[in-house]
Nucleic acid binder design. Structure first.
Lengths: 346, 346
DNA sequence: TATTAACACTAAAACGTTGTAGTAAAATTT
DNA sequence: AAATTTTACTACAACGTTTTAGTGTTAATA
């Protein structure tokens, strides 16, 4: 049954013409006479000729494929970004290869090398936590040196000179905090991450700035920086304990701003257990407009990072670089603005 | 700066030997003298020679790449499956290309054709809702006829003869329903989907069977088949209204079994609004062990479909087919057993 | 009528590999 | 010393395309 794929050569011998004639006919070249063209095209269609992309790639030295490396795929933000990339790319005739670093430096390097070894024209990547901590960007520099364009998104570094797409974390955090302040909240609990993650860092700064601009003196007891290692399950238990302890110690707060959904969901659980009313007594907001926010009770007000837009923008930037030689020199950084999605928790 | 990639030919001229010698040296062939080998290997390393995978693919007629087509990527189950596929595949030296059909028949066909046009050795796919409704599998048959192995997972059809990986939906649903019955519940609300989705269909049957085996007569008012078109946001509003109406009409139930997380989350919201205690008054369970279940209050008891395992199994099946010619004839269907993850809602 | 232009096609190289077959020179055997 | 084997290489085809540079015919021009 295996009807295998037919090649130009086979069509040529079958039809008694040369390979070039077949190729040119199929590409509708004016060099070939109308009759011959028709004959070839008809035969090709009848035998379901499909041009072999690999041979083409070899010849053109481009694969029309872009590689994406993300820290995690089971993740609302990242899967949305991919969605954006995939949509734009496939619409532009590009394939998308996905690789997952699992937040590991080593795996990121491996995946990057595998991709750079052919098969992709350019790379879109969000750095693994480990890479950010290590600050070792040799693999990226190598790839770029080979003439493969790299676009960094979300988890970026200033140590690399390439196109970047970032969320305006700081002003998003500032807006979120200000949003709570405008609702009359003054004692706002911040649930953030360790500082080496620029994301957490920027958001913490935005929070601090908002307080400052509103003349509120920050209270260190109200700033929790979660130690986000691996398993988010365990992490949550620890965080819940911390918040519980805070309440038990009598540290008072009337607002919570978390740098992601799950931190806020954890806080919500604790408040519920302590029978504290949300949003009446405590108003809550967080980054990442994901699934969780839509299904808790009350639903969570969030700061949307427009993940899909980030994906599209990254893909645009990359494809622009791939198709327009002259764009290779300049490096652009696109900043995606956040927006607040108000739900029931504020 | 562009140090481009060095080729065998360049190494050869540089070192004054033939291309074959270089190739063989790098592949550590016994045909080549030790000294020459050393020289070549050293030179190659110094210039960071990387073998061009595309040329290799053309030569070997295999790409070491597998294509995955899923209906949606921003989806806990599917992204987990991909995770499984990616893990196993990359461990076996395979790349993974992802494409999204967005539940559209047309896009599925397009993506499939793009993939089949070279670039992939085999395909793992979960069918789009539209395809299932249309029952048109010509594109899949074509691909298989071309000698490209296809593995179907989760959303499968009996009209195609190929390897399949499915969840034991029926017995999972039966187990879930029985689980509620064993907790003393008799009036169990079922939140399912339209029947053309075999998933919803099987789960409904499992529910029905469980009732039967326990001598409970099914109550049609307690079976809601959601009309799951596009936007899940709107869908939820409708579903919530339906459940609310049910309660207002005085239709009584003490358990809820939903075929997915979000239906159960919606139900939970309604019960909360009506001040009905979970799990005291109503016990709840659902399919899909996703993120939502972990962050609602109470956390939801779920039926895990072991998405990652499905991914791994699919990849195993495919790679087996790719590497072992003789396995091409037989078709296997692997059934992944579900398991119940008990949390706070029961 | 001789030259040129247009037409309809073909040959061959190139993209980067690998593997088969071939070839000198050196080493071994008879 | 001649025949054979071994060693250490090289040439070349092949994978499936596209493209450049031809090559005969026929038609148009001088």
């Amino acid at each position: 049954m295996n009807k295998k794929r037919i090649t130009l050569k086979e069509i040529a011998t079958e039809l008694g013409v040369s390979i070039s004639t077949v190729s040119k006919s199929l590409n509708n070249s004016p060099e070939i006479g109308e009759e011959t063209k028709k004959k070839v095209v008809a035969f090709a269609k009848a035998h379901q000729y499909r041009t072999n992309t690999i041979a083409l790639s070899l010849k053109n030295r481009k694969t029309k494929t872009i590689g994406v490396i993300i820290p995690e795929i089971v993740h609302y933000f990242f899967s949305n970004v991919i969605n954006g990339i995939e949509n734009y790319a496939s619409q532009q005739g590009y394939n998308v290869i996905i690789a997952v670093s699992n937040e590991s430096f080593e795996k990121e390097v491996l995946q990057m090398e595998a991709m750079a070894n052919g098969f992709i024209d350019g790379i879109i990547i969000s750095l693994a936590k480990e890479t950010l901590k290590k600050q070792d960007y040799y693999h990226l520099q190598e790839t770029m040196a080979m003439g493969i364009p790299v676009i960094l998104f979300d988890r970026v570094t200033s140590n690399l000179s390439c196109d970047k797409v970032v969320v305006d974390d700081k002003s998003g955090a500032e807006a979120a905090t200000t949003f709570l302040i405008n609702k009359g909240r003054k004692k706002i609990l911040l649930l953030s991450t360790q500082d080496y993650l620029n994301v957490g860092n920027h958001r913490t700064n935005g929070y601090l700035d908002a307080l400052k601009k509103n003349g509120i003196f920050p209270d260190n007891r109200l700033i929790i920086k979660c130690n986000d290692q691996r398993s988010s399950e365990e992490e949550m238990v620890v965080l819940e304990k911390q918040i519980e302890a805070l309440i038990d110690e009598g540290v008072d707060f009337d607002g919570v701003f978390a740098v992601n959904e799950i931190y806020l969901a954890a806080a919500l659980r604790v408040l519920r257990a302590k029978n504290i009313k949300v949003p009446k007594e405590v108003s809550m907001i967080c980054f990442t407009d994901g699934v969780i926010s839509r299904y808790t009770t009350p639903r969570l007000t969030t700061v949307s990072q427009h993940a899909e837009e980030m994906g599209i923008t990254s893909a645009e930037l990359l494809i622009e670089k791939l198709e327009d030689e002259s764009s290779m020199d300049k490096t652009i950084t696109k900043i995606i603005q956040c927006s607040i999605v108000e739900r029931e928790s504020t």
